[in-house]
Computed example of a mutant assay.
Amino acid sequence: MLSRIRELWTKALLGLLLGAAAGFLAYQAVRLPRPGLFTVCGALAGLLIVVVVFGYRRSVRLTDITVSVPQFSRLRFAVTRDGQDVAWKLFVEASTRIATQPVADGSGRVREALTSLYSLFAVIRDLLKDSQPSRQGGSDPAVEHLAIAMLNLELRPFLSRWHPALHDWEQAHRDRPESEWPDDAACRADLADLQQRLVGYVLSFGKLAGLSNAAEVLTAGVPGPAGTRA
């Protein structure tokens, strides 16, 4: 939220400076002889056209990328600079949590896994709320659509099933270890299936962010080389 406020103030200040500069140039231009006035106005108009067109091309449609996502097969995205930034944040958040890291049988706690997934849901939702929607140049989906699909089709159903089930058992058996929960094995199996599906989403976020080695970063934890983000 603070970064968004700073960005708005920066844009406002830049607008004031550009407006003041434009006013000064206009004042100087009207004092020129007529040929000079037309020359200055034409040059400024050409500069404005170049800036607008270049900015539009950079922000509206950077490149087209096709990714494979669970439940959707293959999707074609029109990726923008804003979309790349959102995809990178999503990749970092999801790849550094238990969402994509397996929990071996007999190790770890299901409660910790559920808490981590619940936290991931909240973080991604807040990230999407605080980000400006990616501009689209056509009917192709944006990065935000993929993130919302992951929340609603994957995380929400899993958490809705297992979070209250484990909570109710914990409240009724405060003095017993989690390993005695009758649904422990079933929940772990469901968690493993969920993690496999989430990997597809996370790798897609990495690809949309411009990472050429998203799979290696996800599995080995090795940071991508400089320049992998377009």
Rank of each mutant, 00 (worst) to 15 (best):
Phe205Gln: 02
Val103Gln: 15
Lys89Cys: 03
Arg4Val: 15
Leu218Phe: 10
Pro164Thr: 06
Pro164Met: 07
Ile124Arg: 00
Leu25Val: 10
Gly108Pro: 01
Thr228Phe: 11
Gly15Glu: 12
Trp88Tyr: 14
Ala220Arg: 15
Ser139Phe: 11
Asp130Lys: 03
Pro225Cys: 01
Ala189Leu: 12
Leu208Pro: 01
Asn213Ser: 14
Gly83His: 05
Ala172Thr: 07
Gln71Arg: 10
Leu13Pro: 04
Ala214Ser: 06
Val222Asp: 11
Tyr201Cys: 00
Ser68Ile: 09
Leu32Thr: 00
Arg57Tyr: 15
Leu44Cys: 09
Ser131Lys: 00
Phe121Ile: 03
Leu146Gly: 00
Arg229Ile: 11
Leu14Trp: 14
Phe121Asn: 08
Val50Met: 04
Thr100Trp: 14
Thr115Cys: 08
Val79Tyr: 12
Leu198Phe: 13
Gly36Gln: 02
Pro164Leu: 06
Ser160Ala: 07
Pro157Thr: 08
Ala122Gln: 13
Val30Pro: 01
Gly23Thr: 06
Ala215Thr: 06
Leu90Tyr: 08
Ile65Cys: 02
Val50Gly: 00
Phe205Glu: 00
Leu37Trp: 14
Val86Gln: 01
Tyr201Gln: 01
Gln195Trp: 13
Pro182His: 10
Arg74Thr: 12
Arg176Thr: 07
Ile148Tyr: 09
Phe54Trp: 15
Pro33Glu: 04
Arg74Glu: 12
Arg58Leu: 13
Val79Ile: 11
His163Glu: 14
Phe72Asp: 04
Ser3Cys: 03
Asp64Arg: 08
Ala220Trp: 15
Val92Gln: 09
Ala142Pro: 02
Gln136Trp: 07
Gly19Leu: 06
Thr39Gln: 04
Ala172Cys: 05
Asp140Tyr: 14
Gly46Phe: 13
Leu166Pro: 09
Leu32Phe: 07
Leu8Met: 14
Pro133Thr: 04
Leu208His: 10
